[in-house]
Nucleic acid binder design. Structure first.
Lengths: 338, 338
DNA sequence: CTGTTAGCGCGTTCAT
DNA sequence: ATGAACGCGCTAACAG
């Protein structure tokens, strides 16, 4: 069913049919109605490849993730995609997730993907302090939003959670419980979120007059094994910290294991907090104190922002900071050193 | 940089250039070398939209997932995608994940996606006993492989883990530990994997001469809250089961919570086994006995199978059954009723 | 071996 | 308000 066949069956030219279907003004109401009726009766749909060649649009957007070994971020990933897809589906746009492997050929892989022109816009996740992917997207003129800020890139559209505020609040909460030696198990320092969470951590310590060098910060990969490994080292320190703040729940659950193995009790001997409010943390023993950041909502905001960018809005002005919510649970208790 | 410009600069026709670049035999070695040199010198790349209109191919495949509320399956999802993408990237194909929301408009959404012709082939995950999506793909003539078998659909290409064998082995193992009252917390019975796992469960009971009606089976959603809820009911049964087999790790971790809340010890008072070998299970207390099914390897096999289907092989003959590996850990111990 | 021609199916000026 | 004609950039059938 081509537009040609449809036009023939109506005794019209293809151009009239095309304009009637695409909402042009210079077509009589009567003709438009006739065309639309015939189109839906014959179930006409423009050939997508031809449509794309003519318009340059694909009708799809990509959510870019960096692919590497298993880490805990994926648990929340589905919720993010759901939020994005929900908004974009209403605009008849498809949402597709594409994993670009991290490593030396990351940029060339991304270039290859952009050149393939499979999508009209991009949502970039897991931003880094200086992110060459952002620079590439800007150079190519591809509409995009990032999930998470960057620090040294030219201004662009982004949606982020208030990492600084969240970790300042969490740290202050631990201080209010009497903790003075608090450790931070953080993500790698090239990740933007890690830098910001540490800022919040240090601000809270500073306000409370606690010396930074009594509160160790460790940078590590985001998985349980790393959490366990770092926690082991923290336990052998003298004096050891009475509370541990983790960049994500997965790290905290790994830390649980080392604490228990040492014969200590989580929540009384040592307090632990995570971030992300995963179900694994909720069902852990004891339930893990964490921070919830409404991830599906973030997805919806990302989609709305991307639509604005694709519509021609100035990306530099499109920035959204979301407040996470602190969830105190049994893993975070009073300091026993008081 | 169009093929026209490239041809002009060489004093050749566009068709000769096209054939030289696309590896046709009827072009002189000398001409081909000249064309290739000029193409890479001028960094020529065919316009993707035009290329697609002419060939009908997109250079991408989609991995289809069903989108619904948070469940534990996603944790392993990244590993699957990595395996798929690794193989397809070597063929210069892009791998994109697309979530189709489950519900009444699932089929019409899938139809819309197929009509958009964004991909050349599809990997369909989470198959159901009778799967209308499979029927649709067959009707449309879209090359595809499923991850998991179906039971009432026409023959098609699939890769699956040996669910029957895995759960028969796991159940037998529990029986060998002295358990006689074993419960199964299963997925919903419209899911193919759930039916097959139950088959393995029942075969083992049958071989051991244990009456099925002493071993309850519960069907539920695949998340921790459901596991906790079902476990609560199991604990109030008289007599209560001494071992619980769960369709996935996430259910098992939910069950942990209810068992602990009842003041019982996992692994001694009640044995628990999961499936999937997730990190959350590995780091749980006690470590969760589970089954590992080499998910990245499954991804590679799915990709290889899809390539064969796209190459014209008979889908009905492309079936692969993978053996999972039983991982006994502290959560599964001897029955105390012995 | 190479060039000429046609067509893929649209959207979009430019006449009328 | 409508139709004719052209262009998007490429591949493929045909001719020589």
């Amino acid at each position: 069913m081509s537009i040609q066949a449809l036009a023939d069956s109506l005794g019209l030219s293809t151009s009239t049919v095309s304009r009637a279907l695409n909402g042009y003004a210079d077509v009589s109401a009567k003709t438009r109605a006739r065309v639309e009726a015939a189109a839906s009766a014959m179930n006409y749909q423009p050939h997508p490849m031809a449509h794309r060649l003519a318009t340059g649009k694909t009708g799809a957007i990509a959510l870019l993730t960096s692919m590497r070994g298993g880490n805990y971020l994926e648990a929340s990933f589905t919720a993010l995609v759901s939020g994005v897809a929900e908004v974009l589906r209403a605009q008849k746009l498809f949402t597709m997730s594409v994993g670009i492997p991290t490593g030396d050929d990351e940029i060339s892989e991304l270039e290859r993907f952009l050149s393939a022109r499979l999508v009209d816009g991009i949502i970039l996740t897991r931003t880094r302090t200086h992110d060459p992917r952002v620079a590439l997207l800007q150079a190519r003129g591809m509409p995009f939003v990032t999930y998470g800020r960057t620090m040294d890139n030219a201004p662009h559209a982004w949606v982020d959670t208030d990492n600084v505020g969240a970790f300042e609040q969490a740290t202050s909460q631990l201080i209010a419980l009497g903790h003075r030696r608090i450790a931070l198990i953080n993500g790698m320092p090239n990740m933007a979120f890690a830098v910001l969470r540490q800022q919040g951590f240090e601000q809270a310590l500073h306000k409370a007059g606690i010396a930074l060098d009594t509160c160790p910060v460790h940078y590590t990969e985001l998985n349980g094994a790393s959490g366990a490994h770092v926690m082991e080292r923290l336990l052998s320190a003298v004096p050891r910290p009475s509370a541990v703040l983790c960049a994500i729940d997965g790290l905290a659950l790994g830390a649980y294991q080392s604490i228990k193995k040492a014969g200590l009790l989580v929540g009384s001997d040592i307090s632990v907090m995570g971030y992300g409010n995963t179900e694994a943390g909720e069902f852990a023993d004891p339930p893990l104190a964490s921070m919830d950041h409404a991830i599906a909502e973030n997805g919806r905001h990302l989609a709305q922002t991307l639509l604005q960018v694709m519509g021609g809005a100035d990306p530099a002005s499109l920035n959204l900071l979301e407040k996470p919510k602190l969830l105190m649970r049994a893993s975070a208790g009073k300091s026993i050193s008081n």
